[in-house]
C-alpha cells in the first residue's frame, strides 16, 4: 500500500533521487556527540512551532501583553505547556548550541573544508542570543521590563554612538510601547528570517560537504604520510 502511494508520487514528483541523496548516503562512523546538532535543530523546530502558536493569542502592547500572556498560561488548554515549551526551549537551544559548538571545537571540525559551516554556526549562535534577549521582554512582567531596561542600558557605554544606540534599541529614551513592538517585530519576523537563512545554508553544507569524521589521535595521523607513500 505504502509502496503504491510512494510510486504514485514518485511518478509525479520524482522525489526518490532527493531522498536517496539525503537519507541513503553514507556518513563516517560517528559517536553520540554528533546528535547535538540535530537536537538543536529539533528544539529550533519546537521554538518555531510553539512561537507561532503563542502569536495566536499574544498582543504586543503594554495594555494587553501581560493580560494575554496570563490568559495563555492560565486559561487556554495546554497554554501552560506551549508557553513552557517555548520558555524552556529557549534555554535548551542555548545549551545545546553551546555543547554542539564545543563538540565542533574539540573535533577541529571547523577546519577545511567546513569553514563556512562554522561561520554560519556562529551566526546562528548570535541569532539565538538575540532571540533570547528580545523574547525576554515580551511577557511585559516585572522581570521582563527591568531586565530589558538594564540590558538595553548596556548599549549606552559604547563610545560616541552609545546614547544613539540606546534610543535606537528602545525606540526612544525610555522603555515603552514602541520598545515592545520593535522587540516583537524583531523576535517574530527579522530574527526568524535570519535564522532560517543561516540554518538553510548550515544544513545544505552539512549534507553537501558531509559531517566530519571523529579525528584519530596523533600516532595514526603522523603515520599517515607513510601509508600514502606506500600506496
Amino acid at each position: 500500500m505504502m509502496e503504491k502511494i510512494g510510486l504514485w508520487f514518485e511518478e509525479r514528483m520524482g522525489w526518490r533521487p532527493i531522498w536517496t541523496a539525503l537519507a541513503l548516503r553514507n556518513i563516517p562512523k560517528v559517536n553520540w556527540f554528533y546528535t547535538l546538532g540535530s537536537a538543536t535543530l529539533l528544539v529550533m523546530i519546537n521554538q518555531i512551532l510553539t512561537g507561532i502558536l503563542l502569536t495566536i493569542y499574544y498582543v504586543p502592547s503594554p495594555q494587553d501583553a501581560y493580560s494575554s500572556v496570563s490568559f495563555i498560561t492560565n486559561e487556554i488548554t495546554a497554554g501552560w505547556l506551549i508557553r513552557g515549551l517555548h520558555h524552556w526551549g529557549a534555554s535548551a537551544m542555548v545549551v545545546l548550541a553551546g555543547l554542539h559548538m564545543i563538540r565542533v571545537v574539540v573535533h577541529g571540525a571547523y577546519k577545511f573544508p567546513r569553514e563556512v559551516t562554522w561561520f554560519t554556526g556562529l551566526g546562528l549562535l548570535a541569532v539565538t542570543m538575540a532571540f533570547g534577549f528580545t523574547g525576554y521582554l515580551l511577557p511585559w512582567d516585572q522581570k521582563a521590563y527591568w531586565a530589558t531596561t538594564v540590558g538595553t542600558r548596556m548599549l549606552e557605554v559604547v563610545p560616541v554612538i552609545g546614547p544613539w544606540l540606546l534610543r535606537f534599541a528602545r525606540g526612544g529614551e525610555e522603555l515603552s510601547a514602541v520598545t515592545l513592538t520593535r522587540f516583537y517585530g524583531m523576535h517574530i519576523w527579522v530574527l526568524p528570517a535570519a535564522l532560517l537563512l543561516l540554518v538553510g545554508i548550515h544544513m545544505f553544507l552539512v549534507v553537501r560537504i558531509g559531517i566530519s569524521a571523529p579525528p584519530k589521535a596523533a600516532e595514526s595521523e603522523s603515520e599517515e604520510p607513510d601509508v600514502e607513500v606506500e600506496a
Binding site: 529539533l42 502558536l53 487556554i76 497554554g79 506551549i82
Partner: peptide, 19 residues
C-alpha cells in the same frame, strides 16, 4: 511520538476558545 507530543497539545490549544 514526537509528532503526537507536539501535535495533541497544539490541537487542544487551538480549539480551546471554541469550547
Amino acid at each position: 511520538g514526537i509528532g503526537a507530543l507536539m501535535g495533541i497539545p497544539t490541537v487542544a490549544y487551538l480549539v480551546s476558545p471554541a469550547k
